[in-house]
Design a binder for these strands. Sequence first.
DNA 1: ACATTTGTAGAGTGATTAGTCAATCTGTAA
DNA 2: TTACAGATTGACTAATCACTCTACAAATGT
Lengths: 192, 192
Amino acid sequence: MISQSVNDKRTDLLAAALKLFVQYGFHGTPTSQIAKQAGVANGTLFHYYKTKEDLIVSLYIDIKLRMGQYIEAKAEPHKNPKKNFRNQFIEIVLWSLENKDDFYFIQQFHNSPFAALVPPEEIQMQLNKFCGQIEDAIKLKAIKNRDTDFILSLITSHTYGLTQYLTKAKFDDDKQKKIIKDSFDMLWKMIE
Amino acid sequence: MISQSVNDKRTDLLAAALKLFVQYGFHGTPTSQIAKQAGVANGTLFHYYKTKEDLIVSLYIDIKLRMGQYIEAKAEPHKNPKKNFRNQFIEIVLWSLENKDDFYFIQQFHNSPFAALVPPEEIQMQLNKFCGQIEDAIKLKAIKNRDTDFILSLITSHTYGLTQYLTKAKFDDDKQKKIIKDSFDMLWKMIE
DNA sequence: ACATTTGTAGAGTGATTAGTCAATCTGTAA
DNA sequence: TTACAGATTGACTAATCACTCTACAAATGT
C-alpha cells in the first residue's frame, strides 16, 4: 500500500518536527534531526517538503486542520448561542490541554515571521466559522454589539490565557473542568 | 565621556537587534547584521554580549525594565482598586501601541525556548507588583475571589488581545481611547 | 609621562546547515 | 519479463554563522 506509507512518512515528519520545534525552536532544530527523529533519510524530507519553511507552514496548517476537525466532531449545534459558545469554548480548551505541543507550537508560530507565509485563504477559512457565529449572536442580542474582530480577539485571548494558566498549574480533571466552566461564565459576563 | 559612549553602543546594539528580530526572527538575524545596523564592528557586539543568546535575553530584560519604568512614572495611586487597575490597564495598552516592536518582541520571546533562560529573580520581580495589587483587591472584595495567578492570566491575555486588535485595525486616537476604555469596562465586569 | 585597563575593529576559523544529486530500490502495469 | 514512475537513500556542497583573535586606540589611574 504505497499511498499509506507515503502518508506515514509525511505524518512521521510532521510529528517529529512538532516535537523538536517545541523543544528547541525553529532555528534550533536542523532538518537532519527532524529526518532522524522521523526515521527517514535527510533527502526524503526534501522530497515531501521543498524547504524547511514549507515544512513549518505545512505543520501549522495540519495542526489547525486537526483542531478544526476535532471541534467539529464534538459540536452539538444549539439554537441557544450561549450554549454554542460554551460548548466550543470548552472543547477548544480541552483540545489544547490534551495537545499541549500543538497548542504551544501554534503560539510559537503566530509570533514568528513564518506567520506571514500562511496562504490567505487558509486564514480566511478558519475565521469564517467563528465570525459567522459571533455575528449571529450579535443579531440575536445575545452578546454586545461590537466589531466582530474585537469580540473574536477577546474570546481568543481569553481562551489562550486560561489554557496557559491550566498548563502551568496542574489540577485534577474535576478541578480543571470547574475552572474552565467558571472561566466561561466570566467570559460570558464580559461579552453578553 | 567613556561610560556615555559605552551606553550608546549597548543601546545601539539592543535597538538594532530589536528592529531586526521583529522583522526576521531570532534565527533569521545574523549577529553580523545586528552589528552593521548598530554601526559597530562584529567583534564589538561580542565584547558587550558574550553570546547571541545573552543579547536576546538582555534585550528582553531591557524592554521589561523600560515598560515598568514607563508605567510607574504614569501611575497615580488611588485608594480605589478599580481606578488603579483602570489606570494601569490603559497605560500598558498605550505603551504597547506606542512601542509596537517592543510589544511584538515580548510575545515572540515568551513563545520561544529563550524564555526559559530568564533569571527567575527577574520574573518574580515583575510578577510581585501585580500580584500584590490583585490580592489587595480580592481582600477588599473589589474583584472575585479566585487564584491570583488565574486573575493575572485573564487580565494579561485580555490586554494582549486588545492590543493585537488595535494594532491590526487602525483607528484614530479618539476612537482608540474609546475602545480601550470600553475594553476595560468589559474586563472589569468579568472579574468584579 | 607611563602603565594598565577598556573599547573597537574586522579578518579569520571551525562547525553547522539547508538543500542537491546520482544511484538504488519498490511497486505497478503492459 | 520489461519498462517506468515515484520513493528513498546518504554522501556531498556551497554558504552561512557564531564566535575568536590579534592589533591598535582611547581612557583612566599613578
